[in-house]
Nucleic acid binder design. Structure first.
Lengths: 158, 158
DNA sequence: GTCTCTGCAAAGCTTTTGCATCGCC
DNA sequence: GGCGATGCAAAAGCTTTGCAGAGAC
């Protein structure tokens, strides 16, 4: 991506949309935080720091728009919030969201996997179901939390 | 499951909870519809047919309770509703939700897969992340919708 | 009889929408 | 200057909560 901000402005114009400070600011806020899964409220707080007059409704409208343009990806961690993260650049058609969610600390880790390609192929053949996208969430306990519980087990000898 | 309704009553009592008509009726409603992914409102409508005086709040409270007891499974299809289905019987610790969601007709298909076991094992080893549960959603187009679009393509010769 | 559960209504929360104003093109 | 975008506030929609009465044990 040589100059993705210019690309973004072009993308807006190509779709008959206007380039506004708010839209650029929201995208930049998400770009600065790759791998973060932000709620609309969180994005609102981030952008407000350098653009205090922005409204929450604008954030909601903009993330919807950016999601439709495939610039950002939508995901849910089943906590009642819709979350967004910067999309895998220049890969409009193959966004594979794989997330590891720690049930203890709540941290979210992303990972890429090719094993699912085989699964999708198998489903296509056996069930005649054509898979075009997927969302995978794995719940468990992360490295740090595992080690902590190991330590506490060791430490707990009075 | 020899007599799962008795088992359920026992489970409630063992947890210091009371056996009520509403709780039994809600579980029965879900049991009658295996593979259906019902919202609280839908469960409410089902139960109301034979128990008209039930309240929606009771349904919300009961599905939460049944979910905590691992009797039913919670899932989301990202449409703003929390959904519930009868859990995999007698398998309290290994519920593997795999869902195929048709983007055209909205139908949901469930499938079991062992490929993910290998993936989880790999994640455990490479990332030191202990997976205990997962939620997999695959979006695409089902058999019927695929065939329909094939037909409409054939039919559209005029 | 006690203590939990239920039903109703109200509140809570995230997200969406209406509308006058603002600002990009 | 026109028309889309914004900001505010109000509304919408799902879910939770408070409370008095009902029901399980």
């Amino acid at each position: 991506m040589p100059n993705s901000q210019e690309d973004f402005k072009l993308l807006l114009k190509q779709n008959g949309l206007k380039v506004t400070t708010q839209r650029v600011a929201i995208l930049e806020a998400l770009k600065k935080r790759p791998g973060c899964h932000l709620t609309a409220e969180e994005i609102y707080d981030c952008v407000k720091e350098e653009y205090p007059e922005i409204g929450l409704a604008t954030v909601y409208r903009t993330v919807q728009l950016l999601s439709d343009l495939n610039v950002i990806d939508k995901l849910s961690l089943d906590d009642g919030y819709i979350r967004y993260e910067i999309g895998k650049m220049e890969q409009a058609n193959s966004h594979h969201h794989h997330h590891l969610i720690c049930l203890n600390c709540g941290k979210v880790f992303a990972f890429e996997d090719d094993l699912l390609e085989a699964l999708e192929e198998r489903i296509r053949k056996t069930l005649n179901f054509q898979v075009v996208d997927h969302e995978v969430k794995l719940f468990g306990y992360c490295k740090d939390c595992n080690e902590q519980s190991d330590n506490s087990r060791t430490d707990s000898k009075i």
